[in-house]
Design a protein around this nucleic acid. Sequence first.
DNA 1: AGGTCGACCTGGCAGC
DNA 2: TGCTGCCAGGTCGACC
Length: 276
Amino acid sequence: MPELPEVETIAADLRQRIIGEKIQEVVVHDARLIRDFPRSVFADCPAPGFIRAVKNREIQKIERQGKALIFYLSGGKYILAHLGMTGQWVLADSAPRAKVSITLSSGQRLHYNDQRIFGGMTVVADLAKVPYLRGLGPEPLSPGFLRVFQAIAMTGIKAPVKSFLLDQHKIAGIGNIYASEILFRAGIDPRCPVNQITEPQLRILGKQIVAVLKEAVCQRGTSKRDYLDASGRQGSFQNYLRVYGRAGKPCSVCGKPIQRVVQAGRSTFFCSICQK
DNA sequence: AGGTCGACCTGGCAGC
DNA sequence: TGCTGCCAGGTCGACC
């Protein structure tokens, strides 16, 4: 599900509703979800250790970094969570398919669902030592991003620009949906190597990264399949997609059919007339 | 060094 | 109806 706008929406929702609450009870329905971030599984079942580590701590702050969600707990512990493809954090009395359920001091219940189990969570004592966070590129919504982006993009990268946008080490938070949308708005062919894009085009690209992500945050994310916010509601940016998931349908600008190609095993959507 | 590809999982859906 | 194959918003490690 989650790219930057979706994780940002969930973080904002949870911030409003559970800051200051104490974790009273944790039930792990599927131990595969509790794992070293984000994929490697502990040799033995880590769930009891996770529960012990977070129980009775207060949630003091919630932040997003890239596509990761971080719960700051009292006593210097952090829950580090990643939603993978199908993860959901939902506040609700019950959630029949929840993989992890957390009861808070007010009686609210926070559930983590994840159909494909690509996401998960772990508890850490030092964020600075987490390889995923250390490796993240600049945040598109942070001040000074455009200048940093320009500098990174000018380092002679030969990869197709679509792969570049998806690389979390280069830029944090962009995923498959927004990469296609950003490139359409910038008028750049997703297959074009980064080092063949002109400086003025790169400036437009940087601005479109910021514009598309900001707009998607305002629309509370894109609910194409599974994504729901922390109240279980859909986002609305799917109503504004110009190319993603529209293969064969007419381009909103020139009317020619939107193309779908596969790059690095993932679908890319674009207009071969409007994007050069 | 830097880029590409399969593996990790489950479920929905189109086509036969 | 039921089977098969394809598809899905992410990330990492093996491989070139």
